[in-house]
Design a protein around this nucleic acid. Sequence first.
RNA 1: GGCGAGGUAGCAAAGUGGUAAUGCACUGGUUUGCAAAACCGGUAUGCGCGGGUUCGAUUCCCGCCCUCGCCUCCA
Length: 478
Amino acid sequence: MTGVSLRLYDTLARDSRDIAPLDGETLRFYCCGPTVYGPAHIGNFRTFVAQDVFRRVVELGGTPTLHVRNITDVDDKTIRDSQKAGQTLDAFTRGWTEKFHHDCGELGLLPPHIEPGAVAHLPHQIRMIEKLMERGHAYAAPDGSVYFKVSSYSDYGRLSHLEDRELRLGAASVATATDSDEYTKDSLADFVLWKSRKPEDGENYWASPWGDGRPGWHLECSAMILEYLGEDFDLHSGGVDLVFPHHENEIAQSCCSTGGHFARHWMHVAHLMVDGGKMSKSLGNLYTLEDLKARGFSAMETRYVLVGGHYRQPLNFTFHSLDAARQALQKIARYAKGLKERLGEVSVPTHEELINSADPAPFAAAWARLNDDLNVPGAIGDVFSVLNQQKPSTLSEEEAANVWRGLHFICDALGIVIPAVIGEGDIEVPAEIQALADRRWDAKMGRDWATSDALRKELEDAGWLVKDAKDSYQLLPK
RNA sequence: GGCGAGGUAGCAAAGUGGUAAUGCACUGGUUUGCAAAACCGGUAUGCGCGGGUUCGAUUCCCGCCCUCGCCUCCA
């Protein structure tokens, strides 16, 4: 044990609270997962990365977790786009789920212990609707849709603080709502649990006691949480935009169907902005991991950026921040290399090994920051402060080993894999650049400094940096 | 209109009732033939503006200005 316990801000309590498992053993938590109708963008990943850091800190602190994250594989968008792609819904969502898993792997996200899909849990959802009907919290409309009766649940709005929301609806929202054709609802506030079959759904409908149709979006999380985490569990997490209505609706559905407590703690991750504003497809600033890789940035560099702002603060993404991330990671990489030289043969401890011998060593301050509402930027600052003070060459072997373990401990908490020092891996050098560099090396060996420097300049102008060592040199792209 | 978050150096981003971490960028020096790396140092008399409380506020209170997000597609 590390002797520090995690305090985390709770959206519902509007205050920080200690995180401790309800059952005294395992921290059980749920994260709203992606809707798989395309590649996730880095904004989506910001949330998943923040949740991953949460899980890592909990585990490294000595508490095992049960992490459940769903896959939304049926909704308007998945149906619409699968049809556009000429694929069955199942094939379409399976493909995007695989892509999602691939990206998660590259970003170093620990896979959830359970990853349920909505379609595979239709019986659970239908059962929940039946419960809600029995208890008088839901009603079927003439067209076969089923709605949750918001007025039947007095606590509705507690999470989002929109208690009397019909009265508070902005002018724009009212206009939109009344223009829509959902006249079958008793109240504007009621939300759909079961959507009756529509022609545009094609083959994507399922049988229910209320007729053919498909589940409402909010329902899947409630049903799957009940199945895998029960009526009462530790924490629920998602992006801030889910506070209302999604999480509010989940609470209503779950509490009304079971009488249980539902989530004890709510963690919400602020949005990623791009160039100071919201990301959107129309602005062309919606980046995927693929987009950034095409520009030469690794998934780890992206992760470093995503993790680099406090999770409750909007984070502005820019390409400059990716450049800065690369430099910062290289600084850590060079430091780690220095330690390695000091230590000889050392291995990189795994997450499991670190859990079993949890010890932040000289990075206790950084670890404390992480345990204070996951203050990652503060922790990173502390890490560099230590690196600036503990130079590998000045450390005893024992001290170096300590720093090595501690550094990996903190990096593991952040999910950062320390990269190789650039240049130590394979770099493809164009033949003409290589030729220039060889000529320069010959000139240098011949102590023809003028020619050597001129060629260095030429290489720099071509975007290549020459690093000289005693009897060799390296070419690095600038 | 309602709710919420925020305005800290060129950029990013922590933090504290007692005088501003850290990363990037920039920059002086040591070192290197020159570079790179490394090492030593510099770069906000200042934390949106105006008041107030206090021995002392960037940190608390009040007012104002500005930015961003949410208000049933949304991580």
